[in-house]
């Protein structure tokens, strides 16, 4: 935990904007530069910054290891579900057009949902990696 007030204040101020920026990149990704990968990393960065300044325990209080794990699974499942649904609707795997039947709306919705899944997974994986390494010594000594 870092007691330096400059860090603490700056981190608190920056936390929300970083996430906002992440969400922008996330949901802009269907027809412009951006997408789940980048957004996931940005959002995870916010949480990591928080954990760096306020300590691992505080970080885990926001998103517990268990929730984090389920987020990972949920993200992959959303991604896969889009593929499965498109197959069930008579298309091929990840055939967005088959989702609604029209190219415009289908591609739009498909990419949006898939990127959301990707973003969720990337965020949680980055967090999991951070906690795994940062918390390694703590976990072992427990």
């Amino acid at each position: 935990m870092n007691q330096n007030p400059v860090f603490r204040v700056v981190a608190k101020i920056l936390f929300a904007p970083i996430i906002m920026f992440g969400l922008y990149v996330q949901f802009h990704g269907d027809f412009g530069p951006g997408g789940g990968f980048q957004a996931g990393v940005i959002i995870a960065a916010a949480f990591i910054l928080h954990a760096l300044v306020f300590g691992l325990q505080a970080g885990r209080q926001i998103i517990s290891a268990r929730v984090n794990l389920w987020m990972m699974v949920l993200g992959v499942t959303i991604y896969g579900a889009v593929g499965i649904v498109s197959m069930a609707k008579g298309g091929l795997f990840l055939d967005y057009t088959a989702l609604t039947g029209s190219v415009g709306s289908g591609q739009h919705i498909g990419i949006l949902v898939v990127e959301f899944g990707v973003g969720l997974t990337v965020t949680s994986v980055m967090l999991a990696l951070f906690h795994a390494f940062a918390g390694f010594v703590e976990d072992r000594d427990k």
């Binding site: 794990l69 389920w70 990972m72 699974v73 992959v76 499942t77 593929g83 197959m87 091929l92 795997f93």
Partner: peptide
Amino acid sequence: TNLPALLVVVPLLLAPFSAV
């Protein structure tokens, strides 16, 4: 028609579930 995709997708999608 989707057999080739299923062959890959089924194990890969089941993987996260078996982890949790």
